[in-house]
Design a protein around this nucleic acid. Structure first.
Length: 566
RNA sequence: CGGGGCGUAGCGCAGCCCGGUAGCGCGCCUGCUUUGGGAGCAGGAUGUCGGAGGUUCAAAUCCUCUCGCCCCGACCA
């Protein structure tokens, strides 16, 4: 393709709206343009990358036995009401009414629609197992879209849904997808890791997320140094402590702690450590307030809390609510004398003796409090996030932390949807059975963005070969007829050899072309100019390592077909 | 939704505090020169200063309301 025939509006400077590397580079290299918050146009170059990722996904899904179909973007409220997600999904579900006042939503995911298809069309075990997938634009009215394609409101997703006769079959389908995902992300040139994950709004029994390892990732993952365990920090199980503090209980006392509201202030003032303090966090959940106790140096894990309480929607209580419940300003809440509030605690609390807690009174704390003597805990559970250094749940060493970008997620759904939507089939014995389901998503744009996060340098993008918008960037540097002739010949020959070529035929200076080429990130650049042609050669640069080779034009095709990763 | 910030030329920004009728760099157009890592000189075009009200002789600047966008949190492919 010739540069003069395609819109590639590169930018010299970083756009003000972008923060992360991939977002900046996608804008600068002319891949995308924003239309509204979280909504983008894919420009020709960006679309080529998207299509490549889609094609890799398509090939691997087909190879794994899934069949492609395409569901509508708009779906009727009734289907969502059937599973209860019309109300459960919340504001993220963009709803609207048609001219007949019938309610619809833009599909954020398609369990309802596909399950409806299954129950209408599939009767017999003979037709199973089935795995349907689509590559389609989704809409989720995200609270805060950000980082360009990394978290859009409108985004392209591959979603697949499997239907099996039983658990064993479903596990096999799940494993096939798990393996396919490994191949997909490997082919996309990504460094990634599959981790155990929470199932969130989709629901189901278990799931894995595929995390691209990158410091800019929004997720924290933990993994064991023994090598077999990896999980999202939301999910990672924390063992109850094995040893209880042996200190004999001392009498409960109150102390004045003027102006000390944070863990840090209180422990510093009392000259103790945060491991001897119990944080009392008040959460609001649909009108109720819950007190959650965690050790001062631990992080409460809101996903675990929600799972224990079987709710979706948890917020730290506002200062007003805190004042109502505790009778004191924020910073002095404690479990002693707290009324009309459920109190749940992390396992770690059980092992603590003679702790510091808030006294529900301004500028006052209790010291030497003991849970079995001074306050009541309704339930102990795993409510905190794992930390680096915690033992691995698989008992293969200790945990370490890393940041990741979630590019794919596979779920074992079980019969959650087939049950509520009565998706059944007749088995071998003529008995009516519920289909056992799985669902499997990949963020296409996010995968492309992740590739940039992992593959760039100060000059621009360094595309992994399989998803590069072009393989070779031809850069004629001088205006001579000789240069033009060699360039045109190379353009034809390279394409004939099956390489995708971008020919920078603009009337620009060499520096501009080099810089734009580095920015756009094609794996190979071929510079053609009078200087090197005088020696009978052109110059091939590998974008990744910057290495340059001089070769006669006739040998370029051979060299590049050779250098091309398979 | 809570907290912070920003809307001025296609892009990046200054001007706003202290009101006097809009500027810089890049890009764009024309000409000449230049031509292997973001050229030089000369000339030129481009703004309802996000929008609506208000205060004032006078508003980009002060006040009120509104819309959009970005960043931090809850959400997630």
């Amino acid at each position: 393709m010739r540069t003069s025939h395609v819109l590639i509006p590169t930018l010299r400077e970083d756009p003000g709206e972008a923060e992360t590397v991939s977002h900046k580079l996608m804008l600068r290299a002319g891949l995308i343009r924003k239309v509204a918050a979280g909504i983008y146009t894919y420009l020709p170059l960006g679309l080529r990358v998207i299509r490549k990722v889609e094609q890799i996904i398509r090939e691997e899904m087909n190879r794994a036995g899934a069949q492609e179909l395409l569901m509508p973007i708009a779906s009727p409220a009734e289907l969502w009401q059937e599973t209860g997600r019309w109300s459960f999904y919340g504001k993220e579900l963009l709803r609207f009414k048609d001219r007949h006042e019938r309610e619809f939503c833009l599909g954020p995911t398609h369990e309802e629609v596909i399950t409806d298809l299954f129950r209408r069309e599939v009767r017999s075990y003979r037709q199973m197992p089935l795995n349907f997938y689509q590559i389609q634009t989704k809409f989720r009215d995200e609270i805060r879209p950000r980082f360009g394609l990394m978290r859009g409101r409108e985004f392209i997703m591959k979603d697949a849904y499997s239907f099996d006769q039983d658990e064993a079959g479903a596990r096999l389908s799940y494993q096939k997808m798990y393996d396919a995902y490994h191949r997909i992300f490997t082919r996309c040139g990504l460094t990634f890791r599959a981790v155990e994950a929470d199932t969130g709004l989709i629901g189901g029994s278990s799931s894995h997320e595929f995390m691209v390892l990158a410091d800019t990732g929004e997720n924290t993952i933990v993994y064991s140094d023994g090598g077999t365990y990896a999980a999202n920090i939301e999910q990672a199980e924390v063992f109850p402590p094995t040893e209880v503090d042996a200190e004999p209980p001392r009498p409960l006392r109150t102390v004045q702690t003027p102006g000390c509201r944070t863990v840090e202030e209180v422990t510093k003032f009392l000259n103790t450590s945060s491991a001897h303090l119990v944080k009392t966090l008040l959460y609001s959940t649909g009108g109720n307030t819950v007190a959650v106790l965690v050790r001062g140096d631990h992080e409460a894990n809101e996903v675990k809390i929600q799972r224990l309480l079987r709710i979706n929607g948890l917020e730290l209580a506002t200062p007003t609510v805190v004042a109502q419940v505790t009778g004191a300003p924020v910073g002095f809440a404690g479990p002693i004398g707290l009324k009309d509030v459920r109190i749940i605690a992390d396992h770690a609390i059980k092992a603590m003796r003679n702790v510091v807690v808030g006294a529900n009174q301004i500028d006052t704390h209790y010291v030497d409090a003991n849970w079995d003597r001074d306050f009541h805990v309704e339930q102990f559970a795993d409510l905190r996030s794992a930390c680096a250094g915690d033992p691995s749940p698989k008992r293969d060493g200790i945990l370490r932390m890393a940041k990741g970008i979630e590019v794919g997620h596979v779920f074992m759904l079980g019969t959650k949807y087939s049950e509520t939507m009565k998706a059944t089939f007749l088995d071998l014995h003529g008995k009516e059975c519920l289909a056992v389901m799985g669902c499997y998503g990949i963020g296409v744009g996010r995968t492309a963005a992740s590739a940039i996060e992992q593959n760039h340098d100060p000059k621009g993008i360094i595309w992994p070969f399989p998803i590069a918008p072009f393989h070779v960037h031809l850069l004629p540097l001088t205006q001579s007829t000789q240069t033009a002739k060699v360039t045109a010949q190379l353009y034809d020959d390279l394409q004939t050899a099956g390489l995708e070529v971008l020919w920078d035929d603009r009337d620009e200076r060499a520096g501009v072309k080099f810089n734009d080429a580095d920015l756009m990130g094609a794996p190979f650049q071929v510079a053609i100019g009078d200087k090197s042609l005088a020696e009978g050669v052109v110059e091939i640069k590998t974008r990744k390592d910057g290495k340059k080779v001089k070769l006669p034009p006739a040998q370029v095709v051979g060299h590049l077909t050779e250098a091309r990763p398979s």
